[in-house]
Design a binder for these strands. Sequence first.
DNA 1: GTCAACGCGATTGTCGACAATTCTGATGCG
DNA 2: CGCATCAGAATTGTCGACAATCGCGTTGAC
Lengths: 232, 232
Amino acid sequence: MPWFSTTPKHDVVRRICERIWLAVVQRSLRPGARLKEEDLAEIFGATRARVRQALTALEQDGLVSLTPNRGACIAEPGVEDAQDAFSARLCIEERLVLRLCRQAGPEDIAALRDHIARERAAHQDADSEAIIRLSGEFHMLIARLADAELLSKILRMLTIRTSLITAMYQTQATQTCGPDEHERIVAAIEARDEAAAAEAMRHHLAHLESALRLDEARPPVTALREALLPPR
Amino acid sequence: MPWFSTTPKHDVVRRICERIWLAVVQRSLRPGARLKEEDLAEIFGATRARVRQALTALEQDGLVSLTPNRGACIAEPGVEDAQDAFSARLCIEERLVLRLCRQAGPEDIAALRDHIARERAAHQDADSEAIIRLSGEFHMLIARLADAELLSKILRMLTIRTSLITAMYQTQATQTCGPDEHERIVAAIEARDEAAAAEAMRHHLAHLESALRLDEARPPVTALREALLPPR
DNA sequence: GTCAACGCGATTGTCGACAATTCTGATGCG
DNA sequence: CGCATCAGAATTGTCGACAATCGCGTTGAC
């Protein structure tokens, strides 16, 4: 799971990042939640310095918001941030599938199919953690196969942001992106149909975004604090 | 100069980042150059911890390459990295100008024109540092005016990368992007001509990329080391 | 004479303690 | 009774010293 790998320093930092990310997407850590360094250090059996590294990395990825002298919170992206994130993903991922259409080899297709198979298995088992992981990693896999290191790096940042956004704004019907839409994308890539592939990706992302309720008044947990303490 | 502003912590780190960046684009620090922490600390009158923060930030931006237990070097992006970077910029900046075409107010146009005026002044004075800074900041200004925080962040990373690439691969004719092409872009935005604006931006970036010699065998300074020490 | 193994110097990585800042609750004044 | 002021506690930020690691020169054996 090369999910968090800003710098493959020591795995401790990465593990902390991943654990926090997981807690966020599973909604056990809610946006606005305070992240005390010492607590985290104790929880993960690490030193505070390590925790700090993890937090700065997570801030880079947009998962936590880091205000000087006041510590770290889980970030609270607004509606605009959400739209920006999806808009950027659209831009990037469209390009990626086009690239894959041209240069994907049989082994790439096989890798994608294999991934989808694992997604299906996870759905079968109702393994929610695996579902979340795999559905995100599918997009990262596309980036890696497209042989686009830079875009891959950018996309990682964006998927992390959108996963937070999804956790934050998703409606009750907890639908992650299912394997079927992924399948459609892969099929188009295999058929070398650039238009269809781009369209499938666009549709997939639009579907993801539409599953959120971005237009309503903010329902977040921390609305109270934000509402009552405007100066902040 | 909100050039380096990953986190507005203390300005010391930012100043270090900026100084190193400047040295790179001015070609006084060459790709592959070793960056010893202690030396940097002494040079900038900072502690090693601060230097370390700066280096990790610069690694995120792709300016330095940070290998565990072996320290930091100025990064040496390959030809593929260069193409990726320009490709990504194209993707992002096209979207940005389209957005600006729709939502740019008169004050935005004025800000852009003002910026170009400063570019012209810098050219007049042959102030190479100002020229480099301003020509990069023009693109960042577009991102900021387009009110796209996320894309702005991404673009910052990309401009840093491309500035390194430019310094690395530019031909003798040391041409940075001149004010005239910027002027064309602004004119198109002002006229609300989306197609023309996108085209102007595409042309501008293509021009920038074409001014490099990416197709030849690597001429870099460190070719020797790379050639003789393949295992590394 | 060549190669391998070893140890030393140099450099990075890590940690714990201290300093600075902010938040909380209480106190006193208006 | 409300509000500003001010300690005390809690939390983050910073630093210097120590430990781990790596590169390199030396030494020794074959």
